[in-house]
C-alpha cells in the first residue's frame, strides 16, 4: 500500500453561519497527482488554504508527512503552493521575484534561480517586469515560486484558469514533469474534470463543502466506461446466467443494477438468456458517461453548473 503523504480528518471551516468546508477527509498518496474537483464556491480553495497553512481550520486535523497539530510547523516548509492568482511583485522581474523567496530559504546560488526559471520556461524573460507578463507566464512564475525550496508537496489551486489551450497543454506537461522527474506529490484543484483527467492519478470530488467521493483514476474510468446496464429486481439471479455465457467482466453495482463491460453488441442475446432463466429484466440498455457528466451527476446536475 502506498504511503499517505497528506491526510485530513474531519477538516471543517466555518465562516459565521456558513460552513465552507464540512468534515472533509482527504487521503493523498505519496507520488500521486491528486485532482481536487469541485464547482466554483464548492470549498476547494478554502480547503487548500487550510492545508497550506494560510488559514486555520475551525475544527478537524491535518496530517502532513506524518506530523499533525503543532508539529505541522516542522514540515510546512516542505509544501509549496500557488493559491488563487499568482502573488507577484509587478515592478520586479521573474528573477527578482524568485530571488526574494530564495532569500527566505537562505539560498544564495544564482544558478538555483536560473534552474527554476528554466524549469517553468521563463529563462528568456530577462528584466521584463512581471506586470507585463501574460496570464500564462504569471501562472508559470507562480509555480516557479512554489518550487523554491524543493517542496515534496505542491499545491496548485486552479492553475489552468484563464489559460488558452496551448497554455493548458504546457501547464499539463510541466505538472507531469514535476511529478515524474522530481518525484513531487501534487494536489491540484480545478472545476474542469476533463483537463484533470489527463494527468491526475487520484480524485477527490467536493460539493457544497462536502467531499462527495474519493477515487482512483482506474475507478473513475471504470465508472465512466461504455457498458450494458441491466436493471432487474434480484441481480444475484443473473450471475449464473452471465457466467454461463462466459462473461467475466461485469459488476453488480447495487440492488437493481448490473454493469456488463464486454460483448457490448450482445445485449439482445443477454436479454433472451436471462428471460429463459426466469429472470425478470426491467430494462437493458447501452450506457456510457462523459467524465464531465459523471461529475455533474455527483454534484447536483447540469442545471446547476
Amino acid at each position: 500500500m502506498q504511503e499517505i503523504l497528506l491526510q485530513t480528518t474531519n477538516l471543517t471551516k466555518q465562516f459565521g453561519r456558513h460552513r465552507a468546508v464540512d468534515q472533509v477527509n482527504l487521503h493523498i498518496k505519496k507520488g500521486s497527482i491528486y485532482g481536487f474537483i469541485g464547482r466554483n464556491g464548492a470549498g476547494k480553495t478554502t480547503c487548500l488554504k487550510m492545508i497550506s497553512g494560510l488559514s486555520k481550520p475551525s475544527s478537524g486535523e491535518i496530517t502532513l508527512f506524518g506530523y499533525t497539530g503543532k508539529d505541522l510547523k516542522k514540515v510546512r516548509s516542505r509544501v509549496g503552493c500557488l493559491i488563487e492568482a499568482p502573488g507577484l511583485y509587478g515592478n520586479m522581474s521573474a528573477y527578482e521575484n524568485i530571488k526574494l523567496k530564495c532569500k527566505l530559504f537562505g539560498i544564495v546560488k544564482e544558478s538555483y534561480i536560473q534552474n527554476i526559471l528554466e524549469l517553468v520556461g521563463l529563462e528568456q524573460t530577462g528584466n521584463k517586469k512581471t506586470k507585463q507578463f501574460s496570464l500564462g507566464m504569471k501562472q508559470r512564475l507562480g509555480i516557479g515560486l512554489a518550487l523554491v525550496g524543493e517542496p515534496d508537496l505542491l499545491i496548485l489551486d486552479e492553475p489552468i484558469n484563464g489559460l488558452d489551450p496551448q497554455g493548458i497543454a504546457e501547464m499539463r506537461d510541466m505538472i507531469q514533469k514535476l511529478n515524474e522527474e522530481h518525484n513531487m506529490t501534487i494536489l491540484i484543484s480545478s472545476h474542469i474534470l476533463e483537463e484533470l483527467s489527463k494527468i491526475a492519478t487520484d480524485y477527490g470530488i467536493i460539493h457544497n463543502g462536502v467531499l462527495v467521493q474519493e477515487l482512483t483514476r482506474e475507478e473513475l474510468l471504470q465508472r465512466c466506461r461504455e457498458r450494458i446496464e441491466i436493471t432487474m429486481e434480484h441481480p444475484e439471479q443473473a450471475l449464473p446466467v452471465l457466467d454461463g455465457m462466459k462473461i467475466k467482466n461485469y459488476q453488480v453495482v447495487d440492488k437493481e443494477h448490473i454493469h456488463v463491460f464486454e460483448r457490448l453488441n450482445d445485449s439482445a442475446i443477454m436479454n433472451m438468456e436471462l428471460a429463459k432463466a426466469g429472470c425478470l429484466v426491467k430494462g437493458i440498455s447501452m450506457k456510457s458517461e462523459e467524465l464531465e457528466n459523471y461529475f455533474l451527476n455527483l454534484t447536483g446536475g447540469e442545471q446547476n453548473a
Binding site: 497553512g53 510546512r76 516548509s77 502573488g87 511583485y89 507562480g142 512554489a146
Partner: peptide
C-alpha cells in the same frame, strides 16, 4: 496587496 504573502506565509513557522 500583491498576494506575494500567499507564497511564503504558510511556510513560516511563526
Amino acid at each position: 496587496t500583491s498576494g506575494y504573502i500567499k507564497n511564503i506565509s504558510g511556510m513560516i513557522p511563526r
